[in-house]
Amino acid sequence: MNFEKFILQLESALKAPLPGKQAQIKMSPVPIDMRRFEIDLSKNHRKSGVLILFYPESESAFFPLIKRPEYAGFHSGQVAFPGGKMEISDANIIETALREAEEEVGIDRSQVQVMGLLSELFIPTSNFLVTPVIGFLEKRPDLVPEEKEVSRIIQAELSQLLRPEIRKQKILDLGQNLKLDTPYFEIDGEVVWGATAMILSELIHLLHSAGR
């Protein structure tokens, strides 16, 4: 399938009701932290926007993931979508996702065509309510990692994401007597788990509904 046809199908799928928890929970670590799905929006949480950015390459669709550097924090060394916390100056969460992606991987946000949003997902450990924003570029961008926030950029091919063999499972030892039975995607040699995997799970569900 060519890139243009894929974009049209995805735009159509985004107009239907989103699967949300039904799809997200399939890639949730066990024991499942139900706070992810029961967030009280009146509570003092922080908002974050991430960008799922599709672009064409050799008749295929790709999207970038980033690996965080090692640091003293909740998401040290993890693979994620470009994105970050909402600032007061951001008009909305879409602007947050575009601004952060521009800062982290060097895209030109003015060239991104926004298609829609996936379901919000709460991350209890960092108190962020994450909104995934879906957009596309008409040609492959020159991706440049921001050295302090990105240790590497992974250019993930959509067709590989849809292969069932990349979905795996293992016990993650997070220290402090915390072990999680964790489903994950193995993408370009990296373990993609947690909120990123849960967002990808909803994306996969959406793409299957679109006939991918």
Score class of each variant (00 low, 15 high):
V191Q: 11
K148L: 12
I123H: 11
Q160M: 09
P31D: 03
E59D: 15
T196D: 09
I199W: 05
Q111R: 14
K179L: 13
R167N: 00
Y184N: 09
W193R: 05
I134S: 09
E4L: 05
P19E: 05
L51C: 09
V105E: 05
V114C: 06
E11K: 15
Q24E: 14
S110I: 00
P132K: 07
F136D: 01
A156E: 10
I166Q: 05
N44P: 05
G49Y: 04
E186W: 00
L161Q: 08
A197P: 12
F81G: 04
A61H: 09
V192D: 03
K47V: 06
Q169C: 01
S42T: 12
R36A: 13
H45G: 00
P82Q: 05
S110Y: 02
S58D: 15
S159Y: 04
M115Y: 06
S42H: 00
Q169H: 14
I66W: 02
A91G: 09
E190F: 01
G20F: 00
I52W: 01
L172T: 02
I204N: 01
I39Q: 09
L200I: 05
A195M: 02
A101D: 06
T196P: 11
D90C: 04
L117H: 12
I107F: 11
P141R: 01
K15N: 07
L98E: 07
N92Q: 08
L121W: 07
S209K: 13
V144T: 15
V30R: 15
E59G: 12
R167Q: 14
R167S: 11
A195H: 14
D90M: 05
E157Q: 13
E120D: 14
D40E: 13
R212F: 14
E202P: 11
E120Q: 15
E165R: 08
K21W: 00
A72Q: 13
I39L: 15
E102H: 04
I94E: 14
K139V: 04
K26R: 13
Y71D: 07
L137Y: 04
D33G: 06
R36I: 00
P17K: 02
E165W: 06
G211A: 07
K139Q: 14
N127E: 12
E102F: 03
G84D: 02
L65E: 06
E147M: 03
E100F: 02
K179S: 10
Q24H: 15
F62V: 02
